[in-house]
């Protein structure tokens, strides 16, 4: 089951065709402060995008606009050819194809790990309980914590919780996965167990947008790295070019700050 879920977008480097995500001239304001300035971005099927930038640069807001946890005020957000609009039911349908993983995990503390994973399949997809549980178990195995299924989230370590969150998102069989700083709230020794899961997911061909400062992950997995500052995309390039030969002074400064510890 799980291999089906993960393997359907097998060729990231085939002909590009139609983009699965399209941001066209998207702008957003918090009050009178402009957080996003005319963002244009196309993401193709199977692509892995890493977004980085200083804090407050708008990167989290941008990916939160992609599944409309934040609403933008200008421009368009198009997913699989359908634009988010004012029709709430339609927006919910579009959102089903997008899985999201949060910095703070946001697991439901009153439900067991298994129940966290089966909640959406049962209530949103109307899946029989046994089938949902089988699906959840297979995905928990994939993130290597099937033995924790009966525990409650707060009984797990941060890394385990984040892996449950990934499994929970995968249970909805999404075509796109958004990661909002998935390792920022983790202790250093737990970062790799989460990154390993994400790398494996990437290798299976999932379309992914990852906001992260893990540059080794970007180098290894990303098709494109996007650098944002002050609400706009400063530079986007394949990882090799981005890290070895950044073109903008701002990018160089940022890289020198995060790579020289």
């Amino acid at each position: 089951m799980s291999t089906n879920v993960l393997a359907q977008n097998a060729s990231p480097s085939g002909d590009r065709g139609r983009p699965v995500i399209e941001l066209v001239g998207m702008s957003k304001w918090f009050g009178s402060f402009q957080v996003l300035k005319d963002i244009d971005l196309r993401v193709y099927e199977g692509e892995r995008i890493v977004v980085c930038g200083p804090s407050g640069s708008g990167k989290s807001t941008m990916i939160r606009c992609i599944n409309q946890l934040e609403t933008h005020q200008e421009g368009e957000v198009i997913v699989n050819g359908e634009a988010f609009g004012s029709n709430v039911a339609n927006n919910d349908l579009i959102r089903r194809d997008i899985g999201m993983v949060f910095q703070q995990f946001n697991l439901f503390p009153h439900l067991t790990v298994l129940e966290n994973c089966t909640l959406a399949p049962i209530w949103v997809k109307e899946m029989p309980k046994a089938q949902a549980e089988a699906l959840a178990m297979s995905l928990l195995e994939r993130v290597r914590i099937p033995e924790q299924a009966a525990k409650y989230p707060l009984q797990l370590s941060g890394g385990q919780q984040q892996r449950v969150a990934i499994a929970r998102a995968l249970c909805m069989n999404p075509k796109i996965m958004l990661f909002d700083e998935p390792t920022s709230a983790l202790d250093p020794e737990m970062i790799n167990e989460v990154l390993d899961v994400m790398i494996e997911l990437a290798e299976s061909g999932m379309t992914m947008i990852v906001v992260t400062h893990e540059m080794n992950f970007a180098r290894r997995v990303a098709d494109r790295v996007i650098f944002m500052d002050q609400g706009e995309i400063v530079e986007e390039a394949p990882p090799a070019a981005f890290f070895d030969n950044p073109r903008f002074d701002r990018t160089q400064l940022f890289l020198s700050q995060i790579l020289h510890h």
């Binding site: 304001w29 009050g31 009178s32 402009q34 500052d229 609400g231 903008f248 002074d249 990018t251």
Partner: peptide
């Protein structure tokens, strides 16, 4: 020789939202 990043000046928010 690096290119110099010049941030766009922020525009005022759409009048209906502020």
């Amino acid at each position: 020789k690096a290119l110099v990043f010049k941030p766009k000046p922020p525009r005022p928010a759409p009048p209906s939202t502020v």
